[in-house]
Design a protein around this nucleic acid. Structure first.
Lengths: 123, 123
DNA sequence: TCAGACATTGACACTAATGTGAAGGAAAGA
DNA sequence: TCTTTCCTTCACATTAGTGTCAATGTCTGA
């Protein structure tokens, strides 16, 4: 599909899709006319990128971990350098702490909302 | 304590502590000489701010939710406007989706690392 | 077939947010 | 006094994301 359709389906502006390509998060094919040609699977890919960016991961890290998220069991196992493995372990640890922090604070917000809803009069 | 000690204990540069004050995430007292005077509790507060920023929350949101994270059951229940409650519910939902996204991708990285460690020769 | 509407391209510049560096001066402490 | 710490302020770096422009490609309906 072309960029307009992908933008519509992912609700990500075309401008941003080109930006992600510039950041090497996407590598669509090109038609004879030079237009980008996105595979069907890139709809999910874009959603995944958005989620990771929203979660606070920088593009540089996303670029590194994206290939591992496709097919963990098959293709990409072979080209795993020790550096990549170290990076992934490091990032996994960071994601763990992120998850922990977010969970703690979300729970605190939930507790606050519960307390408010129960009413200030209840001790 | 003064800014230098807080910086040392939290490992957050003094420059950044002043920046957080500018962003209204911290409000230290001031001594007669104009020096910032940080309460003991702000050590944890700074750690919490760092965690939330690392998790991708912007300062504007952190500023809003910080007061609710202190003592959900006591003090701040009274001054909860409907707008604040709506904001908190919205942010909690966003944090939920962040947690979900991070968890999914972390698990995918884990699966990849497991597969690599088991060795490419195992089908 | 051709004209007009619309999509796509690359390119440059720009904003907003987070984070830093450094200059110049005042206060603290040895 | 002399060094360290702290003050304010200005400027800059980086990252994610936008605006916009002119040129070109595509599509549709007369």
């Amino acid at each position: 599909m072309r960029i307009g359709e992908l933008a519509e389906r992912t609700r990500v502006p075309t401008r941003l899709l080109r930006y992600y390509e510039e950041q090497e998060l996407l590598s669509p094919d090109r038609g004879a006319n030079g237009y980008r040609d996105y595979a069907e699977s890139l709809v999910d890919r874009v959603t995944q990128i958005r989620g990771l960016l929203d979660a606070g991961l920088p593009t540089k890290i996303i670029r590194q971990i994206l290939p591992t998220l496709d097919n963990p069991c098959t293709i990409h196992v072979t080209d795993a350098t020790p550096e990549l493995i170290a990076t992934l372990e490091h990032e996994r640890a960071r994601m763990d702490s992120r998850i922990g922090c977010l969970t703690r604070n979300r729970d605190a917000i939930s507790a606050y909302l519960d307390a408010v809803r129960r009413g200030p009069a209840t001790p």
